[in-house]
Write a protein that binds this DNA or RNA. Sequence first.
RNA 1: GCCGCCGUGGCUUAGUGGUAUAGCGGCUGACUUGUAAUCAGCAGGUCGGGGGUUCAAAUCCCCCCGGCGGCUCCA
Length: 634
Amino acid sequence: MWNPLWNSIVNFILWYEHRNSMRLLLIHADRMEYEAKKKTKFAENIDDSMKHKALEEVLVVFIAVEENDDQGVIEKAIQEIIDVARQVSAERILLYPYAHLSSNLAHPDVAVALLKKMEEEIPTEVHRAPFGWYKSFNIACKGHPLSELSKTIKTSMESKALQAEKKAVSHWYILTPEGILTRIEDFDFKDFENLKKFTDYEISKSRKVDRVPPHVESMQKLELVDYEEASDPGNMRYYPKGRLIKSLLEQYVIDACISHGAMEVETPIMYSQEHETLKRYLDRFPARQYTMDGKRKLFLRFAACFGQFLMTHDMILTYRALPLKMVELTKYSFRKEQRGELVGLRRLRAFTMPDMHTICKDMKDAMEEFTKQYKLSVEVLEGIGIPSESYEVAIRMTREFYEENKDFINSLVSVLNKPVLIEMWDDRFFYFVLKFEFNFIDSLNKASALSTVQIDVENAERYDISYVDESGEHKRPVILHCSLSGAIERCMYALLEKAHLDKEKGHLPQLPVWLSPTQVRIIPVSERHIPYAEQVLEMLKGVRADIDDRNETLGKKIREAGMEWIPYVVVVGDEEERDGTVTVTVRSESTLKHQKKITVAVEDLLKMVKRDIEGKPYRPLPLPVYLSKRPKFR
RNA sequence: GCCGCCGUGGCUUAGUGGUAUAGCGGCUGACUUGUAAUCAGCAGGUCGGGGGUUCAAAUCCCCCCGGCGGCUCCA
């Protein structure tokens, strides 16, 4: 009898991770007897009748009152208890404060008050064990199917906020560069296949797929990134080549932010769960948080907003400094996304993104900045290797914002000169009034947001951020949230998926040259050509080149260079050595059947590669130069 | 989180009740190569983990972990 009871208590504690909820463990017992032995420092004052009780045919309700529990929770809990009591035909109820059900307890005064309230409001015979005493107890659980139940009663506050969001009704349109707003059911998608896919994805939510996305196979085969079973799902392992690509993208994107005028900062990755301002966020999105319950309860950030807003709160800001931009490359942002949503590099639980915030004087300035960042996002994605044909634009806003700023919205649409998906809400349910996203559409017709900018009209207030205007008055700024590229990992996903889409069109899959781990592979025809290969390597300064010195046939080395997606494959033998040239297979101009081969001077090859990578970050080869010395990672 | 499918050497995989198959990769040797896999030999497996059924489990049952897909969700 004791084992099942304690098992159920332990399971219960392990099972529930929810925050801000009252926790109940209900045991229908033949008999329950307790005795208050000794006071703890939280002990309530009680008369003798409460010190010892023995009850029969009783529903014992072990209760932990949690932080933020309120009247709404109490009502729901009472209803729950009454329902169970009726179901099991219990004659009486015993409320038994049991702190061990939770690691997030309410203040003792609050807990006692709420327990008393429950005692008063339960209509049947009800008893209450004293709060804050060390008690011995002896329970005889009946052991029928309903005799042991555990319940978590969630706060009504939280559910109200979530319910409101769920009620947000979306109106969908397509807006053309000519400024014509059409309801989606009336729009002719004939020439806009990708936009159709995106719209279907957003609205009809039909997402039938029976395949592993292609980028997952690529990221593993190319030895870029892999799953790490020993970690939490969605936390990846990066091999040297994957780390290189990620580093280069990170550098490129942060450079773009800085040359746009942003100040790079760094803020903590973890924050206190008790912090007044941050708490409200947590209440709204309790399940998506990585939390750590040590001596101090902490949670891991999901973006750099917290750190930057807390920093801005402490700053002295005048109108002269605005618009003011701050950026952090978040390594990492943590979001405990639901298990079933994590796929390869598409959605992770730990990811890196440029998170830039712009403090603007007013809505007018915010809109100006919004347009600049919209255009910059186009450039940045282009630079990364994701052209505008690969993604579709969504603009989401309140109806009010649209009605007041039609020309402005039209001007955004004309930037890329193609129709965009519009989502409108009658009321503002989120912290922003306007946002755009660029959504990559993959080979399985799934859409993923890359770049995004939002106009935030709520957080200046929440974080008490203000600036002093020309007349010396304190004013609330409007804040822009911007992620120029979206998550870096997601850019890698998009590049790999794009390579796969190109392959389906008959091209050889490839990464942009500046991101290719090996840019030039030098293959000596036989062992005696290795010294010349080394000479060529020496001349290719500032290029990631390596030498396949393995004891393999030429055919095999060529094949493997191809399977590594290497953009320039150089073969050197007697002829090249004699003439001081190289024979290069240019991947971007080849197909599997017909390879484009050119014989050029080494300097000319160097010029070709340099032209490809101009203006992009460079890092050296992440692996040994000689292939014979390389490990295999999988 | 819920539902479904999956998990065999580093990788891909055969094997549905009698302790396991092959290829690639690795190591050794031969060959010294001219544009997408040279030949031979050798080594390598607690069949994701735990429990159960059975004389006997990779195979059947239960639980857990991990992967994929769907639902839901994405500050």
